[in-house]
Amino acid sequence: MGWRIQLSGNPFGTMVAVTAVVLGVLGLVMGDGVSRGMTNSLAGHANLIAHLWGAMFAAGGALTLYGLYTRRVTLELPGLYLVTGGYAFYCLTVLVGLGSHGLAAGVISGGLTVGSLLKAHAISERARRVQDGASGGTEAVR
């Protein structure tokens, strides 16, 4: 199946994962320069943590994309959990580090956290139903 067909089938999930890769690479390369909120909230440790967060976030986005486009939920699911953690961490550090000045970024990343977690939960539930035979064994995991 071509990537364009896949993209049209899940444009939002694709962009959530692509954004995680882009932000993750920026964090990995730039360290604490990637986010003033992260720098403020993690005083003294922000640089190392930003590099680690970036690596985890980029890896999660890449796994999510790969799993999504190859239809391998065994890769997409751990990727989604890493993406969830990346967005949640960013949400918290922006809100703590910038206070009311970080509300927009915090709310957006908080929403992406919840969305990623809900998608991971939905995939897990469908996989359990298939495994338990509740669907008669014909339902796909996706």
Rank of each mutant, 00 (worst) to 15 (best):
I5K: 13
T39Y: 03
M30L: 14
G44T: 03
G61H: 01
G60L: 03
V34A: 10
G97R: 04
A43D: 12
G115H: 01
A140R: 11
V114C: 07
L75T: 06
Y69I: 10
T39C: 07
L48S: 13
V21Q: 02
T64N: 03
L80V: 12
L48Y: 07
G110T: 04
Q6E: 15
T14R: 04
N47Y: 05
T113A: 09
V73C: 09
N47W: 00
Y87S: 13
A134R: 05
S124Q: 08
G9D: 04
A88C: 10
V114L: 14
S135N: 13
R4Y: 06
G97L: 08
A59Y: 10
V96N: 11
T70Y: 02
V34T: 14
L68E: 08
G110Q: 00
I5V: 15
Y87D: 15
V114M: 10
A88S: 08
S124T: 13
L103C: 03
Q6F: 04
T19S: 11
L98M: 14
Y87Q: 14
S135Q: 08
V29T: 05
L80D: 04
V25I: 10
A46V: 10
G133K: 02
H101A: 15
T64H: 03
W3C: 15
L52S: 10
L117H: 00
P78V: 12
P78T: 11
S8G: 09
V16A: 09
V21Y: 00
A140H: 04
A20G: 01
A17E: 02
G61Y: 00
R129H: 14
L52W: 06
W53D: 05
N10V: 00
A46F: 00
A50W: 01
L112T: 03
Y69L: 11
V83A: 14
L92E: 06
R36G: 14
V107I: 14
S116N: 11
T74D: 11
Y87H: 15
L7K: 07
A20Y: 03
L7S: 08
G31S: 01
S116M: 10
N40F: 00
L117D: 01
G2Q: 11
G33F: 02
L80A: 09
E76C: 06
K119F: 04
S8A: 15
Y81T: 15
V25G: 00
V141D: 10
G85Q: 00
V130N: 12
A120P: 02
D32M: 03
T74N: 08
G79R: 02
Q131H: 15
G99T: 07
I49F: 06
G2A: 14
G136S: 06
Y69N: 13
D132W: 12
S124M: 07
E125C: 07
E76Q: 13
A20L: 02
L92A: 13
G61K: 01
M56L: 15
L63M: 15
R36H: 10
L92I: 15
G67W: 02
G97T: 07
V114E: 03
V22S: 05
V21W: 04
E76A: 12
G79P: 05
F57P: 00
T14G: 05
D132C: 11
C91W: 03
G133W: 01
G33D: 08
M1P: 13
A105D: 07
G33E: 07
R129W: 09
